[in-house]
């Protein structure tokens, strides 16, 4: 869903740059206070894995492909602020070195995929984990549902920007983008659940939101 240069007009691009800079600035501010010692390698590896996974386009429907966005996965492993910075860095390297996504459109792409994608994933994960508290598979359900919604809302933002830019009217571009990304979102969900299962089997402490409840239960047993 990387927007190339030329699709968006100047006003829309400018607003998106300001919004993405604000989002990243806030994320960096929170990270500075909340990042734990020793988390830097995990951030680097998670971002590198998402970069690699984004190269793996899979055919989702006749003549259309999709690839992992990674916002939900990054949020599960790094939390929202680390996840936002990691996805934004992936997008920056893709635009600067690989000419994937426009340079001018980097602001809008960071807004849609890093800032909005991660915030949606984070919100949905919190909501699902609260609703399913303690139930089996809560983490996997949260991973799948948050991955799907993050793709759908990122696609909605891209559609809104395309409509504002006069590329295509909202009445056409929103349903088309949501339709194709509803399928791509399922792939996103499946990959996110699979990678989460792998990480959880190897190192359950690396998953945000699963380590904390485990610690609480251990403390309760002690007292």
């Amino acid at each position: 869903m990387h927007i190339p240069d030329g699709f968006l007009n100047t006003a829309t691009t400018g607003v998106a740059w300001v919004a993405s800079a604000g989002g990243l600035g806030y994320a960096t501010h929170r990270l500075r206070h909340e990042m734990e010692e020793g988390e830097a390698p995990l951030m680097g590896i998670t971002a590198a894995f998402i970069f690699a996974a984004q190269m793996m386009n899979v055919t989702v429907a006749g003549g259309t492909s999709g690839h992992l966005l990674g916002a939900a996965l990054a949020t599960l492993l790094l939390g929202p602020w680390g996840g936002m910075v990691a996805i934004a860095a992936v997008l920056a390297v893709q635009a600067l070195i690989f000419q994937d996504g426009g340079l001018i459109a980097l602001g809008p792409n960071i807004l849609n995929l890093a800032v909005v994608g991660v915030l949606v994933a984070w919100g949905v994960q919190r909501a699902v984990l609260r609703l399913m508290q303690g139930r089996a598979h809560a983490q996997s359900v949260a991973a799948f549902v948050s991955a799907w919604f993050s793709v759908m809302v990122a696609a909605l933002f891209a559609s809104i920007e395309l409509g504002l830019s006069g590329a295509s009217p909202w009445g056409l571009v929103i349903p088309a983008m949501e339709g194709v990304h509803a399928v791509i979102g399922v792939v996103e969900g499946l990959i996110t659940v699979a990678v989460l299962a792998f990480v959880r089997a190897a190192r359950p402490d690396l998953v945000h939101g699963i380590a904390a409840p485990l610690q609480i239960s251990v403390e309760q047993e002690r007292s």
Binding site: M1, H2, I3, A52, M55, M56, N57, V58, T59, V60, G63, T64, S65, G66, H67, A155, A158, S168, V173, A176, M177, V180, H181, I184
Partner: peptide, 14 residues
């Protein structure tokens, strides 16, 4: 990655 689908992605399709 060489096995990746070369079809246009969702945005390119639209």
């Amino acid at each position: 990655s060489p096995l990746a689908s070369s079809h246009p992605d969702g945005l390119e399709r639209v």
